[in-house]
């Protein structure tokens, strides 16, 4: 399996935690209890974090599968340079944004989830991992060769039950 890249798990956890935070925010806003404005903050923060975490970074070893339609977000996130590249920065960010969510009940769970995500990012940062965008490799232009044999004999759909041996 190879060495664990904590950032991959932290990324999945961040998306899950953001969903919890957004749901908590919706609860707070719909309930209209005291300090429901924190719910608005939670929804905004949750959405922002999903946008930040949606583009997957490049894996250190092996293939890096992208999420659907992540390329434009990947471009935006890579513009953040150190702020978005360093996972230690993300650890601090998650700790800070989870603080207001601790003040009301509906978002308390979301805050705890964000703190956990921050801890996993701390592990990633300590291991020296960094977020690098998955680049798009340009299509390679093959050399144009004159009269070179390129295609081996195409095997047509074989009739099952007939002999496949050649008749020579």
């Amino acid at each position: 399996m190879g060495k664990i890249e904590w950032a991959r798990w932290a990324n999945e956890n961040a998306i899950a935690s953001s969903c919890v935070v957004i749901m908590g925010g919706i609860l707070a806003v719909s309930g209209q209890f005291e300090l429901w404005q924190v719910g608005v903050y939670s929804i905004i923060m949750g959405v922002l974090m999903i946008l930040l975490e949606y583009p997957r970074g490049r894996r250190q070893k092996g293939t890096s599968p992208e999420r659907k339609f992540q390329f434009p977000l990947s471009v935006v996130v890579s513009k953040g340079r150190l702020l978005t590249r360093s996972y230690l920065v993300r650890f601090i960010v998650y700790l800070i944004i989870s603080v207001p969510c601790c003040f009301i009940l509906p978002t308390l769970l979301g805050a705890v989830c964000y703190m956990t995500t921050g801890c996993i990012y701390l592990a990633a940062g300590i291991s020296g991992e960094e977020w690098t965008p998955i680049g798009r490799e340009p299509m390679q232009q093959g050399p144009t060769v004159f009269e070179e044999i390129r295609r081996p004999p195409p095997r047509g759909p074989v009739q099952e039950g007939t002999d496949t041996k050649n008749k020579l």
């Binding site: 399996m1 890249e5 798990w9 999945e12």
Partner: peptide
């Protein structure tokens, strides 16, 4: 993705 890459 986690199950496939980091089963542990």
């Amino acid at each position: 993705i986690i199950k496939r890459s980091y089963y542990e």
